[in-house]
Design a protein around this nucleic acid. Structure first.
Length: 574
RNA sequence: CGGGGCGUAGCGCAGCGGUAGCGCACCUGGUUUGGGACCAGGGGGCCGUGAGUUCAAAUCUCACCGCCCCGACCA
C-alpha cells in the first residue's frame, strides 16, 4: 500500500479524551476514531490487524475441531426468558423493540442462541462432541465505557461453545481449549497466562481468565513467581499471616473520643491495624448482613457474594448502618450485635486480644476474644489476598498485579442445557442433558492489549503476527531519481514476494514527518531509502523495537530482509 | 447512579460582559527534503443546545445534551 493513497490519519498531538497508552496510540496512529462513548470505527490499519488476530483464532480453533458459525446479533427475548437472564442480566443487556413491539436484545454473549440451535438438531450421542464458535460484534451497554476499545459498548468477540456427553468429556474439551488459547495469545505476540477466575453471571463451576499483565489492566491478579499459581483476586487464596499478637485478658472498654476509622483508632491506641476488627454492614436483596474482618484487610465483595449466594450486595449507608445495628457509625462492633447474620473472615479465627467498636459513642473494646465476648461468626474466606502472603501452592510470597482480561473459559455444566432442554439419547437409550463449556476472546481488546504491551515513547511496536503491515518502506528523497527508482523497485518486489509493505511515497512530507509517522505506526521493520544511502550503495533497515539502524548492500537486501522477518516471526511462536 | 472535570476551527488550546483568537493541520504559489521545513497569500466558527439577565452574552444564571476521570458495576 502506498501511503499517498492510504487512509491513515495520524495525529501529532495526544487527543484529550484518551488516558491510557493503547487508547492514545490507537487514535494517534490512525487505527480508529470514536463515534460515541464506547463506540468506535476501525480504520484500515486496525482492520488489517483485527483480521490477522481473527485468522490466528480460526486456525487454532480448527486445530481443536471447532467449526465456525455466524449467529444473529439481534436475539428474541424469549430465549433470554428461558434461562432467566432477561431479568438477571440487568441494564447491560441492550434491549430493543421491533415495529410490532416485540422485545429483542442485542447479543452480549450467545449461550442461549447456540443452545437453542443445538437443542433443535441434537438427537444422539453420536453427534457429540460438538464445538462451535463465531467471531462477531457484541453489544454490552456498559455502565462506564472506558479506555477506548478496552471496555467499549460494541466490540468484536470470538465466542465458542462446546457440547459433550458428560462431565469427563467436557473437562477434556475444556483443557484442550485452554491449550488452544495459550497458543492463540502467544501467536499474537502477547505475554498472557490463564488465571483462576470467578465464573460470574454466565454461570458454571470452573473458569480461567487469560490475563495480559499490564499496569493499566482493570483486573487485580494474585500470582506466584515460584510456582504457576495465579488467580483473579476475586477467587485468589493465600496462607495468611495470622496475628497471634496479644495475651489473653479480660475484655475492657477504652475511651476513643471521636476516633472512628481503623487508621484513627490504631494511631490513637498505638496498635497496628491487624489487631483491630473492622465491622461492615451490607444490604442485599434479602436481610442485611454484618461482616467482620481484620482492620488491615479488605472485603472482596465477589467472594462474599458467592458465599452468600445473593445477586445484590451493597455497603450500607451511614443511616442504614445505624438503623440496622443500633450503634453509632464508627463504633460498630461485634459485641452486642443482634438480629443479624455475621460472617467472619477466616483470618480472624486464630487471633486473640482484638480491638473493636464499643457499640456506643467514643468507646472501643480491647482484649476481645471471639466466642468469649461475642458469638463465633460463620467463617468464610471473604477477603482480598495481600502482596507478600504465602502461596497456597508453594508457600512462597505472592504478588498482586494488574491484568487485562483478553479471554475467559468456562465449564458451564448444564447451566444452559437444563433450562433449554438441550438433550440427546445416550448409548443406553436414556435421554441426557448435554454438558457445555464456553470460551470467549475479546478480539478488539486483544488488539488494544497487544499495544499496551508493545509500545515506547515514540509509538506502537507491533508484534509481526498482528502488525497491519510487516515492512514500512520510507522514501526519504522523493526528488532523487535514483532513490525513487530503488524504492519503487523494492516496493514492487515486496508486493511480488507477498511481503506486506506500507510504502511512504509521499512527495510533500518531510523526512522528519515520515520518520515520526513510521515510529508512531510502529511496523516491525522499516526500510529507509534516501540520496545518502543510494550513493553508498546501501539500504538502511531498522527493527522498530531496537535503536540501531543496519546498513545493508543493495545486492543483499532481500536476503537480509527475509532473515530479519523470520527472526520477528520467531518471537510469535507458541 | 454518586463525586469531579471539560465542551470555542480538523487537533491542541487561549479569551471569561463591548469586532472570535493562537499553534499545528488544510488550500494556492514558490523555495525545500536524513528526525514533525520556510516565505507569501488564503479558506474554515450559530463559541454543545435551549431559555433567561443585559443596551450588549463565548463570557453571567438556570436547565438540558455530550464527552472524560474516580467510585459503584462488569460474559
Amino acid at each position: 500500500m502506498r501511503v499517498s493513497k492510504s487512509f491513515i490519519p495520524t495525529l501529532k498531538e495526544i487527543p484529550q479524551e484518551a488516558e491510557i497508552p493503547s487508547h492514545q496510540l490507537m487514535l494517534r496512529a490512525g487505527l480508529m476514531r470514536k463515534v460515541a462513548s464506547g463506540i468506535y470505527e476501525y480504520l484500515p490499519l486496525a482492520h488489517r490487524s483485527l483480521i490477522k488476530i481473527m485468522n490466528i483464532i480460526r486456525q487454532e480453533m480448527e486445530m481443536v475441531g471447532a467449526q465456525e458459525v455466524l449467529l444473529p446479533i439481534l436475539t428474541p427475548a424469549e430465549l433470554w426468558l428461558k434461562t432467566g437472564r432477561w431479568q438477571k442480566y440487568g441494564k447491560e443487556l441492550m434491549r430493543v423493540q421491533d415495529r410490532h413491539s416485540r422485545d429483542f436484545a442485542l447479543g452480549p454473549t450467545h449461550e442461549e442462541v447456540i443452545t437453542d440451535l443445538v437443542q433443535s438438531e441434537l438427537k444422539s450421542y453420536k453427534q457429540l462432541p460438538l464445538n462451535l464458535f463465531q467471531i462477531a460484534t457484541k453489544f454490552r451497554d456498559e455502565v462506564r465505557p472506558r479506555f477506548g476499545v478496552m471496555r467499549s459498548r460494541e466490540f468484536i468477540m470470538k465466542d465458542g461453545y462446546s457440547f459433550d456427553v458428560d462431565e469427563i468429556e467436557a473437562e477434556k474439551t475444556y483443557w484442550k481449549m485452554v491449550e488452544a488459547y495459550k497458543r492463540i495469545f502467544k501467536r499474537c505476540g502477547l505475554f498472557c497466562s490463564p488465571v483462576e477466575a470467578d465464573s460470574g453471571l454466565i454461570g458454571g463451576n470452573f473458569s480461567h481468565e487469560f490475563m495480559v499483565m499490564a499496569e493499566t489492566g482493570e483486573a487485580a491478579v494474585a500470582f506466584c513467581k515460584s510456582c504457576d499459581y495465579s488467580a483473579n483476586l476475586e477467587t485468589a487464596k493465600s496462607i495468611p499471616t495470622v496475628s497471634l499478637i496479644n495475651e489473653i485478658r479480660p475484655a475492657c472498654k477504652v475511651p476513643t473520643p471521636n476516633y472512628k476509622s481503623v487508621s484513627e483508632v490504631s494511631n490513637f491506641l498505638k496498635v497496628s491495624a491487624n489487631q483491630i476488627i473492622k465491622t461492615l454492614i451490607y444490604v442485599t436483596e434479602g436481610d442485611p448482613i454484618a461482616v467482620i474482618i481484620r482492620g488491615d484487610h479488605e472485603v472482596n465483595e465477589t467472594k462474599l457474594q458467592n458465599y452468600l449466594k445473593v445477586f445484590e450486595l451493597k455497603l450500607a449507608s451511614h443511616e442504614e448502618v445505624e438503623k440496622i445495628t443500633h450503634m453509632p457509625m464508627g463504633f460498630v462492633g461485634p459485641v452486642g450485635l443482634k438480629d443479624i447474620r455475621i460472617i467472619g473472615d477466616l483470618v480472624l479465627k486464630e487471633g486473640h486480644g482484638y480491638i473493636a467498636g464499643g457499640a456506643e459513642p467514643d468507646v472501643h473494646w480491647t482484649y476481645l476474644e471471639i466466642g468469649r465476648d461475642f458469638p463465633t461468626p460463620e467463617w468464610a474466606d471473604i477477603r482480598n489476598v495481600v502482596t507478600g502472603e504465602a502461596c497456597v501452592g508453594c508457600s512462597q510470597p505472592l504478588n498482586v498485579g494488574r491484568g487485562i482480561e483478553v479471554g475467559q473459559t468456562f465449564k458451564l455444566g448444564k447451566r444452559y442445557s437444563t433450562p433449554m432442554h438441550c438433550v440427546f439419547l445416550s448409548k443406553s437409550g436414556v435421554e441426557e442433558e448435554v454438558t457445555m463449556g464456553c470460551y470467549g476472546i475479546g478480539v478488539s481488546r486483544t488488539l488494544a492489549a497487544a499495544i499496551e504491551q508493545h509500545y515506547d515513547e515514540f509509538g506502537i511496536c507491533w508484534p509481526i503476527a498482528i502488525a497491519p503491515y510487516q515492512i514500512h518502506l520510507l522514501l526519504l528523497s522523493p526528488n532523487d531519481a535514483e532513490a525513487v527508482r530503488l524504492a519503487e523497485m523494492i516496493y514492487d518486489q515486496c508486493v511480488e514476494k507477498k511481503i506486506e509493505v506500507l510504502y511512504d511515497d509521499r512527495l510533500e512530507a518531510s523526512v522528519g514527518f515520515k520518520f515520526k509517522d513510521a515510529d508512531l505506526i510502529g511496523l516491525p521493520i522499516s526500510v529507509r531509502i534516501g540520496s545518502k544511502s543510494v550513493k553508498e550503495g546501501i539500504v538502511e533497515i531498522k527493527i522498530r523495537r531496537n535503536p540501531q539502524v543496519m546498513k545493508v548492500p543493495i545486492a543483499q537486501f532481500f536476503e537480509n530482509l527475509i532473515d530479519l522477518l523470520q527472526e520477528e516471526w520467531k518471537r510469535c511462536e507458541p
